[in-house]
C-alpha cells in the first residue's frame, strides 16, 4: 500500500503538542467542543513526526474553520464550502505536504456539498475533519443539513421541514475510501481514528460529533452521558465481532432484508466488522443504524479500503509523459505543427 506520507519530510527533533500551538488567542465560546478537538489534534500530530512546515490546515467558513489560526503549521482559512477544492489543488501539486481540511456540517454538507463528494470520489490525499454539531453556530443558530426534522431554530420557528444528511452514508455513497466517526469528548478514540486517517492513502473523512453548547447543547447527550453511552455506542473494530451494550450483551446480525438488526450477543452468525471489504454495502448498513435519537450509534472506522490516490495518479501520468517523450522543450513546442519560413 502506498504511504501517503512517504514524501513528507520527517522532523529529526522530538515534537510535543506545544510545538503546534500558536500565539493567537483561541476565540471559541467557553465550553465549545472545538477546544477538545484542537487539543486532541495538537496532541496527536507529534506522533506523525512530520516537519511542521510540511503540514497545512485548510478550512472553509464557520466556527470550526477558525481552526487553522490555532495550529502552528501553514494554514489557509478560505471561503464557505470551498476548502476541499482549495486543498485539492494544493495536495495534487505538493506530494511533500500533509494536507488537512477542517470543516463543519454547514460548510461541507450544505454550501460545499458538491466539493466534498467530488473530493471523496477522486480520493485526493486530504484528511477531512468534519465537525458535526447539527447547527449553524457562527450565524447564530439556524438549523443545518444534519439537524433532525422538526428542529426549532431562529429560521424554523415552527420546526425544520427537510430531512437531514447522514454524513457517513453520504461519504460511502460518494465512493469514499476511508470513512470514520468519532466524538469530541473521547480523546483516546478521536486520536485513534486520526492515526488511521493520517496514514490512509487518499481522502479520509472523519466525522466528529462536536457539541455546540450555545445553540445546540447536549445534541449528543445519549452518547456522552455515563448512564446511557455504553448502551447505545457501537465501537467498530476491524476484524472483531460487533458486540456492544453496557453488559456486552447485544450484537449485530444481517437481517433477511439485508440491513442490520440488533440481536442478543450469544446469537449465531453475529457480524464481524470488516472495514477493508471492497463492497461498501456493509459499511453503508452500519451507517444506517444511526438515528437522531441515538438508539445505537456506531463510532470508529466504517470503511478503510485501498485505492490509488488522485494525486499519485496525476503524478504518474506526468512522470510517464516525461519518461516517454522527454522533458518539455518550449521552442520545440512552439514550432510544432505545420511551419513555414519567410526569408
Amino acid at each position: 500500500m502506498s504511504d501517503p506520507l512517504a514524501l513528507v519530510p520527517k522532523d529529526p527533533e522530538r515534537q510535543t503538542a506545544k510545538d503546534f500551538k500558536t500565539d493567537q488567542e483561541v476565540r471559541w465560546c467557553p465550553g465549545c467542543g472545538d477546544y477538545a478537538i484542537l487539543a486532541a489534534v495538537q496532541g496527536f500530530l507529534p506522533e506523525l513526526g512530520l516537519k511542521r512546515e510540511n503540514i497545512v490546515f485548510v478550512s472553509g467558513i464557520g466556527c470550526s474553520s477558525r481552526f487553522p489560526y490555532y495550529m502552528n503549521t501553514y494554514g489557509f482559512h478560505s471561503i464557505h464550502g470551498r476548502a476541499p477544492a482549495i486543498a485539492t489543488g494544493l495536495a495534487a501539486s505538493r506530494p511533500d505536504l500533509s494536507v488537512w481540511v477542517v470543516t463543519g456540517d454547514g460548510d461541507s454538507l450544505s454550501i460545499g456539498g458538491n466539493h466534498l463528494i467530488h473530493a471523496l470520489r477522486r480520493n485526493v490525499n486530504l484528511k477531512i475533519l468534519l465537525f458535526n454539531n447539527r447547527i449553524y453556530g457562527l450565524t447564530k443558530g439556524q438549523y443545518s443539513p444534519t439537524s433532525e426534522v422538526g428542529k426549532i431554530t431562529k429560521s424554523t420557528p415552527l420546526g425544520s421541514l427537510d430531512s437531514p444528511f447522514n454524513p457517513i452514508s453520504l461519504a460511502i455513497g460518494a465512493e469514499a475510501s476511508f470513512v470514520a466517526r468519532t466524538i469530541d469528548s473521547d480523546r483516546k478514540h478521536l486520536q485513534s481514528v486520526l492515526r488511521e486517517a493520517a496514514t490512509h492513502n487518499g481522502t479520509a473523512l472523519v466525522e466528529i460529533y462536536q457539541n455546540c453548547n450555545i445553540f445546540n447543547d447536549d445534541a449528543f447527550a445519549p452518547l456522552k452521558s455515563p448512564e446511557t453511552r455504553d448502551d447505545v455506542t457501537i465501537r467498530l473494530e476491524h476484524g472483531e465481532p460487533v458486540v456492544f451494550g453496557a453488559n456486552r450483551d447485544k450484537a449485530l446480525r444481517r437481517s433477511v432484508s439485508g440491513s442490520l438488526e440488533v440481536v442478543p450477543a450469544d446469537s449465531p452468525d453475529i457480524l464481524v466488522h470488516d472495514a477493508k471489504n471492497p463492497d461498501p454495502s456493509l459499511a453503508f448498513a452500519l451507517s444506517r443504524l444511526d438515528s437522531p435519537a441515538f438508539e445505537h450509534t456506531p463510532i470508529g472506522i466504517f470503511r478503510n479500503v485501498e485505492r490509488p490516490s488522485y494525486d499519485e495518479l496525476m503524478r504518474t501520468q506526468i512522470d510517464e509523459a516525461i519518461a516517454q517523450q522527454g522533458p518539455g522543450d518550449l521552442a520545440g513546442l512552439l514550432g510544432s505543427g505545420d511551419t513555414w519560413r519567410i526569408d
Binding site: 497545512v56 470551498r82 477544492a85 505538493r94 496525476m314 501520468q317 518539455g328
Partner: peptide, 30 residues
Amino acid sequence: KHKRFGVRTFQAEDEIAAVGAALGASFGGA
C-alpha cells in the same frame, strides 16, 4: 496534452472548484 512540461490539468466539478484548486495550488507555489 503537455504533461511532459509538468503541467497539471484538473477538470473540476464546477467553476468554483476550478478556481479554488488553482488558488490552492498557488498557495503551494504553483
